Simulated assay, not measured.
Amino acid sequence: MKIALVHDYLTQKGGAERVFELLCKRYPEADIFTSLYNPQETIDLGDRAVNTTFLQNIPGAAKYFRLMAPLYFPAFRALDLQDYDLIISSSTSFAKAVKKKPGAIHICFCHNITRFLWDTETYLREYGDYRYFAPLIEQVFQAMRSVDLRYAQEPDLYIANSSIVARRIRSTYGKKAIVINYPIDTGKFSFTNTKQDYYLASARMISYKRLDIIVEAFNWLGWRLLISGNGPERDRLQSKAMKNIEFVGHVTDQERTQLFANASSVIVAALEDYGLVPVEANASGTPVVAFGAGGVLDTQIPGKTGVFFKRQTPDSLQAALLEAREISWDYEGIRNHAVKNFSEQAFFSKVEQVIEQTCSLYQSSTRFVS
Rank of each mutant, 00 (worst) to 15 (best):
A75D: 10
E272R: 08
V251L: 07
V248M: 02
Q153C: 09
F308G: 05
G14D: 07
H106N: 01
H111Q: 00
A320W: 04
G306H: 00
T92V: 14
S365A: 15
T92G: 15
S89T: 13
I184S: 09
L237Q: 00
I137F: 14
R131A: 13
A281K: 08
F54H: 09
T366Q: 14
F348G: 11
V268N: 07
G187Q: 07
Y9R: 15
D156E: 03
G306S: 05
I227L: 08
K188R: 15
F218H: 02
Y182F: 15
Q238T: 07
A263Y: 11
F54L: 11
I245Q: 04
Q40I: 10
L5K: 01
H106I: 03
G128Y: 02
K340D: 10
S264W: 12
A320H: 00
I178N: 10
R48Y: 05
K240R: 14
Y27F: 15
C359M: 13
R234K: 15
D119K: 13
Y182G: 10
N230S: 12
P278D: 01
S93H: 14
I206G: 11
I87H: 06
I107C: 03
F109V: 03
S365Y: 04
D83G: 15
L317K: 00
R48V: 04
H337L: 10
Q238V: 13
S162C: 09
D185M: 03
P314E: 02
L226R: 00
E216Y: 06
E255W: 13
R204L: 11
A338I: 01
A62K: 13
S343C: 06
T358L: 01
L23I: 00
F76K: 08
F348T: 09
F133E: 01
L117E: 03
P155M: 09
A270G: 07
P278R: 00
Y84N: 11
I87M: 01
H337Y: 07
P314V: 05
I180T: 02
T358P: 00
Q56M: 14
P278Y: 03
L271R: 10
